[in-house]
């Protein structure tokens, strides 16, 4: 399951199709026409793949697991910059662990809009 932090989400600068809506492999995210916010329309269908988490340009989305699976609050945020993927995993009590991995060699991916 993912959570969108609306204090951080910038509605992709008003773009018609939001990045998270565009990338979700399950087509689970839509946009509320009233306030232009992206909304997870089918949260129970999330695969926890983190495609939207990584593709969000302002890192407004985090992954959590349903309570029936883990029984506690945790979250994962990730972002993609050039050849690297950055990730922060937060456990109970706010304990954080950070990762920085190089996942592209020779050249970078264009960022497409």
């Amino acid at each position: 399951m993912v959570r969108i932090d609306y204090k951080v989400c910038n509605r992709c600068g008003g773009a018609k199709e939001k990045r998270c809506e565009r990338i979700c492999p399950g087509d689970l995210i839509g946009v509320n026409p009233e306030d232009d916010r992206p909304v997870v329309l089918y949260p129970q269908d999330c695969w926890a793949c983190t495609a939207c988490v990584k593709d969000c340009p302002v890192s407004a989305i985090s992954l959590r697991l349903p309570f029936q699976i883990l029984g506690k609050e945790t979250s994962l945020k990730a972002s993609v910059k050039g050849r690297k993927t950055y990730c922060v995993v937060e456990g109970e009590g706010g304990k954080k662990e950070e990762f920085e991995i190089e996942v592209i060699q020779n050249g970078t991916l264009r960022r497409k809009d």
Partner: peptide
């Protein structure tokens, strides 16, 4: 992180 990000949540804080 490369393949199964959900499991990182299972490890968080352990």
């Amino acid at each position: 992180l490369n393949m199964s990000p959900a499991m990182l949540l299972m490890l968080a804080g352990r």
